[in-house]
Amino acid sequence: MSDADDVPLAQAHPRWHLRVRGLTKSFGAKLVLDKLDLDVERGKVNVIIGASGAGKSVLIKHFMCLLRPDRGSIWVDGTDVFALGTQPLSLFRRKFGLVFQFSALFDSLTVEENCAFPLREHTKKSKAEIKDIVRDRLAALGLDGMQAMYPGSLSGGQRKRVGLARALVLEPEILIFDEPTTGLDPLATRNVDDMILGVMDRYKVTSVVISHDMASVFRIADRIAMLHERQILVAGTVDEIRGSEIPYLYEFIRTSGVAAAGAAP
């Protein structure tokens, strides 16, 4: 049971935007998630940390039903995600923006076409309007002038930013970042962090960020949850996590080189 269960799952909760209950997923014989519970707070940056291969990417792919679980459910504003039929699911997915770990840009489309894709698919905006919106978003991420390039000729950091621009064009309610800063240099990492905070400021979205990088986590997080051994080991506010004495968590933070226990970043 979770403290978020004071409101029935089938009803929107004022504080918790997305509630995961008893999520179990295996690939063949390999159990990746086991009866996992998680609450995602509305309008905040919710960070999920955990070792490589812990199942973080698998977990967030369930949020918008890109994967179906063996058991368990996910509730977004009273909607049971896995009970949706084809058409309602398609509508539901537009609430989300997902920035993939490896960007997942369409190779065959230019940067501009990649960002315009969701607009072209789901809005009736004219070509000129779309062009303007895309230029806006790209400029905000420091990518103006790259419209005509193909993803293959971009650096990893640039691809991530294009992926973010694409996820933002439809103004989603929930933004999910799968390791936005992994593989970036410190300055670019800081840039991406600022970008995420900027987005939070501008669009009032709920975001879920997967990250390994504890320095960056403490910079942006409102809440932190740790995925360990197929479950959420611990979840809480940043201060709760910093003060935590759970050995695995403590070790995870300490070895990352960021001072745990209450020290400022």
């Binding site: 792919k61 918008m64 890109l66 084809t86 398609s90 509508l91 997915r93 537009r94 989300f96 997902l98 993939f100 770990q101 490896f102 997942a104 840009l105 369409f106 190779d107 894709f117 969701p118 698919e121 789901h122 694409r166 439809l170």
Partner: peptide
């Protein structure tokens, strides 16, 4: 196949395109 393993197919789905 390339689109599948580079998650471009997932990306399509995440953007509510079948």
């Amino acid at each position: 196949g390339t689109m599948r393993i580079t998650e471009q197919i997932d990306a399509l789905e995440s953007m509510a395109v079948s």
